[in-house]
Amino acid sequence: MKLASKDILGMKDLSVEEIELILETAESFMEISTREIKKVPTLRGKTVVNLFFEPSTRTRTSFEIAAKRLSADTVNISSTTSSVVKGETIIDTARNLDAMNPDIIVVRHNCSGAPRLLSGLVKQSVINAGDGAHEHPTQALLDIMTVRQKKKRVEGLKVVIVGDIAHSRVARSDIYGLTKMGARVTVSGPSVMMPRDVDKMGVDVQYDMKEALRGADIVMMLRIQTERQEMSLFPSLREYATYYCLNREKLRYAKDDVIVMHPGPVNRGVEISSDVADGPFSVILDQVTNGVAVRMALLYLLAGSEVRNEQSAVERGKNR
């Protein structure tokens, strides 16, 4: 089986079969990262460009490590100013990159839809590493992988996503992905941080976090972006933390075997207390580990399709 599109722009576009293919491939790549020599030659001679229009440390690092473990060459382009300010449009950037003939472009952009714009202009595969408040598909894939790892299934689980849903690309991608895989998703957070008509995405909305957490198998906490001016619409961080910070007391409402997830970076004491973030229910660092495997899987499935016979390298590693 192959992926239907040359690009990974969002979870909305992926079928259940494609998600399963990516996760199975990722699971088979997990082992590489535990070897002493953490490298296979699968993407030797391939070039991966990390084009980041928005600051990012962990996602960019995760993609870079993923590419390097598959022996691809990586180039990082960071531009914190928007392309418009720079004077060069994203279209110019895209055409220039296209002319240099890389194999995969990983793009993060502060504007929703920018990866899609880019994908229409280049021959190469484009992977969306987060665009505005739209989608962050690799985060959702690593989240689903983590859920499968810990719960052995996704279907029928109650997942609660808490925080600033309106501005969260992670929430959107997780909602698409998890509901496709059969989970029941509840979103919780202050009403001022709920996007209009979010219930039409197939989720339950529960403003009372404790009620939302009742019977939860998974709790996903979102980062509160304290730098956003939208925060001025909310009375205070103190009030936010009172009602929406995940602490031990609130966590009691969830199931006994609940797992706690967070896409990072964590604002300790704002959306999650330190004892929960570091506690026994937290799988936050497993998410990070799985992130590398998911990104390796995507790079392989997009750039390695014609070198599929080299999968034997992976198989050999597995049987070692």
Partner: peptide, 9 residues
Amino acid sequence: GFVSTELGL
């Protein structure tokens, strides 16, 4: 509306 929510705009 729903479309702006989905598109993240």
